[in-house]
């Protein structure tokens, strides 16, 4: 079992659906939603949440800083 687990929160309304976070995620956690936000963008979400390691790569590349990253160490 992995020693760290992570999770992200995407600010749905701030996301512009650029897909850079999806590309940057080493664990294929993220995907662009089929649904759109109020501005018509296919916002990013955790399609595969169990795989997140909280590395923050997605947040770091996001031009609109709409991803918060959380991480815990497992005992």
């Amino acid at each position: 079992m992995a020693k760290v687990r992570g999770a992200v929160v995407v600010a749905k309304e701030g996301c512009k659906g650029c897909g850079l976070c999806v590309e940057a995620c080493p664990e294929c956690v993220l995907s662009l939603n089929r649904e759109v936000n109020s501005r018509g963008y296919h916002y990013s979400y955790m399609e595969n949440p169990e795989a997140c390691i909280g590395c923050a790569n997605c947040g770091v590349v996001c031009p609109d800083t709409c991803i918060e990253i959380y991480r815990v160490r497992l005992q």
């Binding site: 512009k16 800083t65 918060e68 815990v72």
Partner: peptide, 24 residues
């Protein structure tokens, strides 16, 4: 458990930049 989020100095607004623009 928060390890990364928005800087306090970034105004909480939606920028005019195109999706994916390096300026952001």
């Amino acid at each position: 458990n928060l390890v990364y989020g928005k800087s306090n100095l970034l105004v909480d607004t939606i920028s005019h930049y195109c999706p994916g623009c390096t300026h952001g």
